[in-house]
Design a protein around this nucleic acid. Structure first.
Length: 355
DNA sequence: AAGACGGGGGG
DNA sequence: CCCCCAGTCTT
């Protein structure tokens, strides 16, 4: 029996019942696939339902404000996915009259849709014979064939894409693709894979050689950098000053408080010596520290954040173009990054005059 | 070819 | 603490 057939038999017995699998609607599949990029199923699930409810069809998605989309995306990370989805939805409306395309060649032109997602959408919605190559597929194939070529090198990506295409069941691309990903997620797991109960025990090169835990090989990443953020909560009447982040850095376009970043972990007294501080605040400005230093870990940076309440808004010297005052109720609707909305969650009573 | 881009969960 | 997750885009 072929690899593909054994895999699909396993899938029939052991596959997960996921909501986006009960449809061939390319819009719904696209929604789920973008959400699931670099994201666990359990983490993405509530967002999938949230988005489908807010935007049941692609024309609704295209017609939404980017702010609303980002707010719905809040907390999921990799926020460019949300902005790219908006672009893609508009393109579907403009170029396909709102009829979501299903072919690989068409969907890969959409913003945020790369090789993996194009293969997923085209195979799941139209059974197009394109093999998905995601983290699961790299792992399963590298172990099954005992390939130690790094999966994140340019050669490795080529090698595995080719093998994935050869293994694909051309007549059952949809089922095969779901099957190999579920197999990677449930059976051929990164840590403590279930080799004792594996249907490929005899064929799997890594298993026979006892090197399952050595595969796949991955080139190591770089070290994390430390960054120090000093946030200032400025209240004027019932409003709070919020700052919108730029396009380039992490958390693009999301809202936070006015910020001064330093290379070192400055205390307030040291921070007061910096040019930016003098630009923002009067000499007489007084601050109340809010809570302790917060550590927020991203993939390649550790962000250490401190929060200060400015006691008198009159001590603020300037108001940059990306700074605006918002009422507390309005702030709830702004798209904020995790560091900010967890702070707000913990400190409601400090900043909301109603409490 | 290498970096940038989030946040959560597991070992 | 490190690794991984239904990756993509930019430089």
């Amino acid at each position: 029996m072929s690899f593909a057939v054994k895999l699909m038999n396993w899938y029939r017995e052991n596959g997960r019942d996921l909501p986006w699998r009960n449809t061939q609607n390319p819009y719904v599949i696209w929604l789920s696939e973008i959400i699931l990029q670099q994201t666990r199923v359990e983490q993405g699930m509530p967002y999938f339902h949230r988005f489908l409810e807010a935007f049941p069809i692609v024309t609704k998605f295209a017609a939404a404000e980017e702010e609303e989309i980002l707010r719905l995306w809040q907390g999921l990370g990799y926020y460019s996915r949300a902005r790219n989805m908006h672009k893609a939805a508009k393109m579907v409306v403009d170029e396909y009259g709102g009829q979501f395309p299903t072919s690989y060649a068409e969907v890969i032109r959409l913003a945020g849709v790369g090789e993996y997602t194009a293969a997923a959408i085209s195979s799941f919605s139209a059974n197009e014979a394109k093999a998905v190559v995601d983290g699961n597929v790299y792992r399963v194939l590298s172990r099954y064939f005992g390939i130690d070529e790094p999966i994140n090198g340019s050669k490795g990506k080529k090698v595995f894409a080719e093998i994935a295409g050869e293994m694909l069941d051309l007549d059952n691309a949809a089922t095969y693709n779901q099957a190999i990903m579920d197999f990677g997620a449930l059976q051929c797991k990164p840590k403590s894979p279930r080799c004792e109960t594996c249907i490929f025990q005899l064929e799997c090169v890594a298993n026979r050689a006892g090197i399952v835990d050595k595969l796949p090989v991955k080139l190591k990443g770089r070290a994390s950098k430390n960054r120090y953020f000093h946030y200032f909560i400025v209240q004027s009447d019932d409003r709070i000053l919020m700052s919108k982040r730029g396009e380039t850095d992490v958390w693009a376009n999301l809202y936070e408080f006015p910020l001064i970043e330093t290379e070192q972990d400055f205390m307030l007294e040291e921070l007061a010596q910096t040019p930016l501080f003098s630009e923002y605040f009067e000499e007489t400005a007084r601050f109340t520290p809010l809570g302790n230093m917060t550590k927020h870990i991203l993939s390649h940076q550790n962000i250490y954040a401190r929060f200060y309440l400015l006691q008198d808004a009159q001590s603020l010297r300037t108001k940059k173009s990306n700074w605006n005052y918002f009422f507390v109720e309005k702030i709830d609707t702004l798209a904020k990054h995790k560091l900010i909305f967890s702070f707000l969650e913990k400190n409601k009573q400090l900043i909301n005059p109603k409490f």
